[in-house]
Simulated assay, not measured.
Amino acid sequence: MDIEPGELTVGQLSQRSGVAISALHFYERQGLVLSRRTSGNQRRYKRDTLRRVALIRIAQRVGIPLSEVAAILKLLPENRTPTRADWERISECWQAELDRRILHLEQLRDDFKDCIGCGCLSLDRCALANPLDTLAATGPGPRRLTTPTGTPSHPNRCA
């Protein structure tokens, strides 16, 4: 069957990761995961591909674009199994971005029911929170939700 110790077939990777085979093929075409081909042209994946696929799934779940996932995964070594230090290093790359996303989600949860500074002044609270649409001078759109205090100007330090 041309399988090395510690390798997985595409079916095994699919079963263990919970990701459809077609999605794994897509991830491979996008350069997110790597495989080697056997003499019979079958894919074989290193066991650490399970962790990469898990990262991809979690990132997708929170809305991180695959292009950003690919950039982070490129920081992992290809010639060896990534160590705990490797995974810690790439997780630090996303720390500021994840903090920014959490802040925006908290703002949406806490402030969307109130005036968000969009300029509509249709809610009775807008007259108190944004009288005469004073936030319009700071720019267009929902100013209270799009310009949080303390948001880093370039949240991703590694990409």
Rank of each mutant, 00 (worst) to 15 (best):
54 A>F: 08
56 I>H: 07
56 I>F: 06
57 R>A: 13
57 R>V: 07
60 Q>P: 03
61 R>V: 00
61 R>D: 07
61 R>G: 08
62 V>R: 01
63 G>A: 02
64 I>A: 00
65 P>R: 04
65 P>D: 01
65 P>K: 02
66 L>E: 01
66 L>S: 01
66 L>P: 03
66 L>Y: 04
66 L>G: 02
66 L>H: 06
67 S>H: 12
67 S>E: 15
68 E>V: 06
68 E>T: 05
69 V>P: 11
69 V>F: 10
69 V>N: 12
70 A>E: 14
72 I>W: 05
72 I>A: 12
73 L>W: 12
73 L>N: 13
74 K>E: 15
76 L>T: 06
76 L>H: 11
76 L>R: 11
77 P>V: 08
77 P>K: 06
78 E>P: 02
80 R>M: 10
80 R>Q: 14
80 R>E: 13
81 T>C: 10
81 T>Q: 10
82 P>R: 07
82 P>F: 08
83 T>S: 15
84 R>W: 08
85 A>K: 14
86 D>I: 05
86 D>N: 09
87 W>Q: 00
87 W>E: 01
88 E>Q: 09
88 E>G: 01
88 E>F: 07
89 R>D: 01
89 R>F: 09
89 R>K: 06
89 R>P: 00
90 I>Q: 03
90 I>V: 14
91 S>Y: 08
91 S>M: 04
92 E>C: 09
93 C>V: 02
93 C>D: 01
93 C>W: 04
94 W>A: 10
94 W>G: 11
94 W>D: 06
94 W>K: 04
95 Q>W: 05
95 Q>G: 05
95 Q>P: 00
96 A>N: 12
96 A>W: 08
96 A>I: 01
96 A>L: 11
96 A>R: 14
96 A>M: 12
97 E>V: 02
97 E>F: 02
97 E>G: 10
98 L>P: 00
98 L>A: 07
99 D>N: 13
100 R>L: 15
100 R>T: 15
100 R>N: 10
100 R>F: 10
101 R>E: 03
101 R>N: 04
102 I>Y: 05
102 I>G: 04
102 I>D: 05
103 L>R: 15
103 L>Q: 15
